[in-house]
Computed example of a mutant assay.
Amino acid sequence: MKWSLAGAMIDALDLCELAQVAEEVGFDSISLSDSVFYPEHVSAPYPYSPDGKRMWAPEAPMPDPFIAMTAMAAVTKRIRFYTNVLKLPLRDPLLTAKQLSTMAVMSGNRIAVGVGLSWIPEEFAFTRTDMRTRGARTDEAIEIIKAVCAGRGPEWVEFHGKHYDFDRLMISPAPDRALPVYVGGHSEAGLRRAARLGDGWLSVNTEIDELTAAITRLGELRAEYGRSDEPFEINASPTGIRDVDDYRALAELGVTEVRVSPWHLYGADFTDAQARLDAVRRFSDEVVNAKS
């Protein structure tokens, strides 16, 4: 099982050192969240809190994930980077594919993209995108990104969908290894999207029971789409974990990568850069590199 460090809401100036330490102590990857802006007033409840309120302050740092991933890749050699999750329907898929293909090439194929829809109506209104068609547009955007970043270098691609349509074009540079596209979401639609189009699935912070149910459903859906024999990543952010044995149980459940925030696990001051680094080193000693 691989280990991923959650890099959300960390000061942009601290991220490069965090990446270097994470690589040094054995983490496999770092995830970066996506938030274009913080609307003062939001007309929909946050889906992942009991009271529907956002759990972060307006000034919480949310660096652009592509820029942050590029900077971290430049100061590391092995560790991978991915978004969790990029709000794909807010963006043009060809421009997104261009950025991802360049990042993948320049990092030595250490980039992946996790995608989601966004739940905030104001994000769509203020970026002049259509919330009503976000699911269908995301499906088409995934296909476009996978065509551009198929792993065969620059080649001619075209796409003719309901929402995006273009004739033959070539984007260069393009990676010589297929760029993984992961899909987030616990809804039936999200699970179906992951099973049908994704190279893997990303969970939110959740208990083991909900993870088990989602993984079971993903297995059913992948069989339905004839993809049971294809490689598929299960990237989970479990809550309620007590010890190393619980992490081993996740591997038996089918989890291929665990995403953690060690500073929260150890009660460290989230705003203290040194405390974060100490927590990363401690988690590596106690869990990532723990002996059986």
Rank of each mutant, 00 (worst) to 15 (best):
S203F: 05
D130A: 14
A147P: 08
S292K: 00
A68T: 03
E207S: 14
L88Y: 08
I120D: 10
T83H: 04
R78S: 02
E224C: 01
R168E: 10
L5G: 10
Q20V: 12
D199E: 03
A57L: 13
T206M: 12
S49H: 07
W263H: 15
D92V: 01
A147M: 13
V113P: 07
G219S: 01
R80L: 01
L169G: 11
A136D: 13
L95Q: 15
P63C: 03
G114C: 07
A249D: 15
D28E: 12
S4P: 04
C149W: 01
L265Q: 11
W156N: 14
L90H: 12
A125I: 12
S284Q: 08
D229Q: 13
M55R: 11
K77I: 02
E24K: 06
S172E: 15
F283Q: 00
G52V: 02
P93Q: 13
E143Y: 03
N84Y: 12
V287G: 09
R177G: 09
A6K: 09
S107W: 00
V183R: 07
T212Q: 14
Q99E: 14
L265G: 03
D167G: 10
T206C: 12
A178S: 02
D51T: 15
T127H: 02
T271V: 09
L221Q: 11
A290K: 14
H264M: 12
M170T: 03
P65S: 10
G116E: 07
M1W: 00
D278G: 05
S107Y: 03
V42Q: 06
S118D: 14
L197K: 13
F37P: 02
A279P: 02
K77H: 15
I120W: 10
S172F: 00
S261N: 11
S228K: 10
R78Q: 11
I120P: 01
M1K: 10
F232N: 07
L211Y: 00
D64Q: 10
D92T: 04
P121N: 06
F81K: 08
T129V: 08
G26S: 05
Y182C: 01
R78D: 10
G185D: 08
G7T: 05
